[in-house]
Design a protein around this nucleic acid. Structure first.
Length: 312
DNA sequence: TACGCGTGGTG
DNA sequence: TCACCAAGCGT
């Protein structure tokens, strides 16, 4: 959960998740959709699918691998997570290299090569951080101390070098460039994509939803029926031509949502109908409008539903 | 290597 | 408002 996600955002999800799936066996035995639903709103949904697959693999193996190579082979476990689990759970003297440790290392050794090209260099330098006896004796505490140093003093924007225990040995601090490291390669501009989604509710206050494809963006998550997300705006006629049924559609506004690599602008249309024909209902599934929790809805769709319901 | 993959917080 | 960032991984 903590991959690219703040401790604060993870907290509630983590506790709910452990309550729902208290053991690796319970997680392995759960339905994939139940796991996705517990993850809904947290983002990077491949982590949920990988974690579920990972639990099944661990159960099949008869327990957790206890070394870096064994952990690294599990789904969703990369170099960082393998090292973190090995050090923190199993006391293996390795240094997990996350964003914090990359930043600390870049500053300590004044590495001016920009990320991501510098990643290999930084990992090699970080590996040498725990050579002293005290550090090697407590791999978990050493890793945690690095995370905390990065999160508190050696922070991205304005590092508190005056308070840093490593101030004297920090090459970037000596050179006066600590705040400018690590350097990053310039980013590409984030394009805007446009879509339209449709909220339709029957007399029993059920709304029509559908499942997204198994691969790609928001894989296997739930959504309101809608158009493609494309680089040109949709005309009203063009959007309504793809409405899930005939109804007096009402445009109720635009939802703007920022993904990592593009910004999405969704025009939301809403309508009431007496009842759904079988033909229409079979394009997706029906759910009570008041109870959309537990349906693996990503945040962008929660925004759309909220906007649509307000108009009805 | 470079990109696809979410969401919320912050200066 | 907006760019940047967060206990990265898979392809």
């Amino acid at each position: 959960m903590l991959q690219q996600t703040t401790v604060k955002a993870v907290g509630p999800y983590y506790h709910r998740f452990l309550e729902k799936f208290p053991t690796v066996e319970a997680l392995a035995a759960a339905d994939r959709d139940e796991v996705l639903s517990a993850w809904a709103g947290l983002g990077y949904y491949s982590r949920a699918r990988n974690l579920h697959a990972c639990a099944q693999q661990v159960v099949a193996l008869g327990g957790f691998p206890k070394d870096v190579a064994g952990l690294r082979a599990l789904p969703g476990v990369g170099a960082y997570t393998a090292a973190a689990v090995a050090a923190i759970a199993f006391g293996v003297p390795v240094v997990p290299v996350d964003g914090n440790v990359e930043r600390i290392t870049a500053r300590l050794f004044a590495v001016e090569e920009p990320l991501p090209a510098a990643r290999k260099t930084l990992a090699a330098l970080a590996e040498g951080l725990n050579t002293d006896k005290a550090a090697r004796a407590r791999p978990s505490d050493f890793a945690q101390a690095l995370f905390d140093l990065g999160a508190s003093l050696c922070s991205p924007r304005s590092p508190a070098c005056g308070l840093c225990p490593w101030r004297e040995s920090c090459a970037a601090q000596k050179a006066g460039i600590a705040a400018t490291l690590p350097r990053k390669a310039p980013k590409v501009a984030r394009p805007v994509r446009y879509g339209a989604h449709f909220l339709v509710m029957d007399a029993a206050e059920q709304i029509l939803l559908r499942k997204r494809p198994e691969t790609g963006l928001l894989a296997a998550m739930t959504e309101l029926p809608g158009t493609d997300w494309r680089s040109e705006r949709w005309s009203e006629a063009g959007a309504l031509a793809q409405a899930p049924c005939t109804a007096s559609w009402q445009a109720c506004g635009v939802v703007r949502h920022v993904f990592t690599h593009f910004t999405l602008e969704v025009t939301v249309y809403a309508a009431r109908v007496q009842h759904f024909s079988n033909h229409v209902a079979q394009t997706g599934f029906l759910a009570p409008a008041g109870r959309v929790a537990g349906l693996s809805l990503p945040s962008v769709m929660l925004k759309c539903i909220k906007l649509g319901l307000k108009a009805l």
